[in-house]
Design a protein around this nucleic acid. Sequence first.
DNA 1: AAAGTATTTAGATAATTGTCTAATTATTTA
DNA 2: TAAATAATTAGACAATTATCTAAATACTTT
Lengths: 85, 85
Amino acid sequence: MNTLFRALNDPTRRQILEILREGDLTAGEIAERFDMTKPSISHHLDLLKQAELVSADKRGQFIYYTLNTTVLDELLSWIFTLKNQ
Amino acid sequence: MNTLFRALNDPTRRQILEILREGDLTAGEIAERFDMTKPSISHHLDLLKQAELVSADKRGQFIYYTLNTTVLDELLSWIFTLKNQ
DNA sequence: AAAGTATTTAGATAATTGTCTAATTATTTA
DNA sequence: TAAATAATTAGACAATTATCTAAATACTTT
């Protein structure tokens, strides 16, 4: 849970997840959408990957990133427990 | 959302929320349950209050803290949107 | 009013985090 | 094989955060 919350605790990373909801993108395509250097985006992608919120798939020269929402189920049930629901 | 995620991004604060799920407690009672000084707990309570995850109710010399899960609804719908559900 | 209890505020410090530039690795194409 | 392209890794730096001790505020009880 710690890694998950840490990953979610940044607006850029949350926006990356929202963008990936529309479909897979390469690291470069993701970086294009932000006013930030590629190494910075690469670092954010790494944290998202650590939390298993995205998976990286290398195809030739490119690395495609895919949203992975499975790990959010754990978060959902934590919230529901808090809400006694 | 930023304040909410920031508040949730700490194991002590998440544990405070879990404890308050069982019922309201004073700041001192909360602090007793942690191996941490009262000022540190007070600081954590302040961040939870900023995120509106708890509310503070002063009764005489004591301040009772109450869990407030309403703000979690926003988080739930953000997660559901990500999951396309 | 003074002493005691509950809690917060202030200020300091070490650790973590987000960002950058420069360098490196890996792949493709001329 | 050399040059170009995609992406990461390394290293530095400023900002933020978690924690502590000491001091201040607020209320209660004697």
